[in-house]
């Protein structure tokens, strides 16, 4: 299987500060990869490389090769908008727009030029099904998204990302602001989505990484310390630092 995301010798700087050092990694399609590590280790910065969200921050510079779906995404002439359509993202805090539930999901379609109303409404329903939210919201599609609970909002954001048919979904601590029940639902969802999508998830929660991911990468102070099979990493880490982190000795 050829990897869908490959990074080679990637460095990332915030002005003078080096947030990522020489990261080499390959992510396979239809897998869930968890990025773990203590706060400030660079895992979120790494995740945000893949849809170039780091571009929005002042003073960021990046070196190295990042290939997503066969394209060097930091090359000149790359269409960032197209890239972001292909690589969906779910944020730490649910951030639905102040629009109706329906319009939130239709948004991605509309900005990408879809005008066919029938197609949009089908797509909205399908995405909500995929995000396991349909039954809860089918009667209030015209209501404001803010009326949903935090967990529902986050699943709405996932549905919103799914609607534009990405091949990769990036999740930046998607359950950190949620209660345990909502978290469980999101994790279930991630497991379901794996069949059709490649998922990269940043998490603080060791158990979560252990439960949902196939592969795990451990970051520490901007370096990729260890990357491998989740089971392997959690039961038999090769590096001392990984072991310390997983057993809760720091972080």
């Amino acid at each position: 299987m050829t990897p869908i995301i490959t990074t080679r010798f990637v460095n990332l700087f915030y002005n003078e500060f080096q947030a990522l050092k020489n990261i080499n990694m390959a992510i396979l399609p239809h897998t869930v990869t968890a990025l773990i590590g203590p706060s400030g280790c660079g895992k979120s910065s790494y995740l945000r490389l893949f849809n170039r969200m780091n571009d929005l921050i002042d003073g960021v510079s990046i070196t190295g090769d990042i290939m997503v779906d066969g394209e060097m995404i930091y090359n000149k002439g790359i269409d960032i908008v197209e890239l972001r359509r292909k690589v969906g993202m779910v944020f730490q805090k649910p951030n639905p727009f102040p629009k109706t539930i329906f319009e939130n999901i239709a948004y991605g379609l509309r900005v990408n030029g879809v005008t066919d109303a029938k197609f949009i409404s089908e797509k909205v329903e399908f995405s909500l099904h995929q995000a396991a939210l349909w039954d809860e919201v089918k009667d209030k599609l015209k209501k404001s998204a803010f009326e949903l609970s935090g967990g529902q909002q986050q699943r709405l954001c996932i549905a919103r990302a799914l609607a534009i048919e990405p091949s990769i979904i990036l999740m930046d601590e998607p359950a950190s602001a949620l209660d345990p029940i909502s978290t469980a639902k999101i994790e279930e969802l991630i497991y379901e989505l794996k069949r059709n999508y490649t998922i990269v998830i940043v998490t603080h929660n060791m158990q979560q990484a252990g439960r949902v991911s196939d592969h795990t990468a451990f970051f520490y102070l901007g370096e990729l310390i260890e990357f491998g099979d989740t089971k392997e990493i959690f039961t038999n880490p090769k590096d001392k630092k990984t072991q310390n982190y997983i057993t809760g000795r720091f972080g």
């Binding site: 908008v81 951030n95 948004y107």
Partner: peptide, 21 residues
């Protein structure tokens, strides 16, 4: 900003983000 980022992440352009969000 999270609203802007949410919109960008869905492939909206800057102008679309400003106009619609």
């Amino acid at each position: 900003n999270s609203f802007r980022h949410g919109s960008y992440a869905l492939g909206a352009t800057k102008l679309q983000t400003i106009r619609r969000v």
